[in-house]
């Protein structure tokens, strides 16, 4: 059914169908990887802008359309996210933040609260190289399986698993080395920084360790 969009890239109806099919997951995916609801809105909007522009380049061998979208979103978040996202939105003349209302913000914040990716992890991600960042972002809540992510980035599952594992180890070291959180941090509750995250935890999935 998604093929409609790709068969009729100039058809707004096809796009609307495609959008409705996938927007919720993209919003949830973004909300669980950026620290700010407005950022999540931007990423979601920019993902569809980018997808619209590039529908004719979708390669089915790189995964299902939804995985393709997730890959776009992850890459927007991973690669100099604010600039790329703003670029995409400016080119489409969209101000997605202006579309957010209180109910939406509340809803997004709930998603973020339940997210495994707290601010400290998010900030530490910024110190990883883009490919490593992208790998960490692709999998996890609302994300892709390792096999799906491997297809999206165009590598083998084995190679992707190695990339992800190295990225997570580096991330764990970055977080462990980080200073204690400032008092003005927006989130309270047990942050990863207050728990010893030594090498023995590094092999586990970072995302799901940080919960309540």
């Amino acid at each position: 059914m998604d093929r409609e969009l790709f068969a009729r890239p100039g058809d707004p109806q096809a796009f609307a169908l495609f959008y409705r099919r996938h927007v919720d997951r993209i919003v949830r995916f973004a909300a669980q990887r950026v620290p700010d609801p407005a950022d999540a809105a931007d990423v979601a909007a920019a993902t569809f802008v980018v997808a619209l522009r590039g529908a004719e380049h979708y390669d089915p061998r790189r995964g299902e359309p939804e995985a393709w979208l997730i890959g776009i979103a992850a890459r927007l978040i991973a690669n100099d996210r604010r600039r790329k996202v703003r670029e995409a939105l400016a080119l489409a003349k969209l101000e997605s933040r202006a579309l957010l209302q209180d109910d939406d913000i509340e809803r997004l914040v709930q998603l973020m609260d339940n997210s495994a990716l707290v601010r400290s992890t998010y900030e530490a991600l910024c110190h990883l190289p883009p490919q490593a960042r992208e790998a960490v972002l692709l999998v996890g809540p609302e994300g892709l399986t390792e096999a799906e992510a491997a297809a999206v980035v165009g590598t083998s599952t084995v190679a992707f698993r190695m990339r992800l594992s190295r990225a997570r180890r580096r991330l764990a070291r970055l977080i462990a080395d980080e200073a204690p959180p400032r008092a003005s941090a927006a989130r309270e509750g047990p942050s990863r920084l207050q728990r010893k995250s030594g090498p023995e935890r590094a092999s586990g999935p970072i995302m799901t360790e940080v919960a309540q």
Binding site: V50, D59, R62, I72, R75, L76, K84, E87, G154
Partner: peptide, 8 residues
């Protein structure tokens, strides 16, 4: 925009 995953 140049943010799409590049096709192979």
């Amino acid at each position: 925009s140049g943010t799409l995953p590049a096709p192979g």
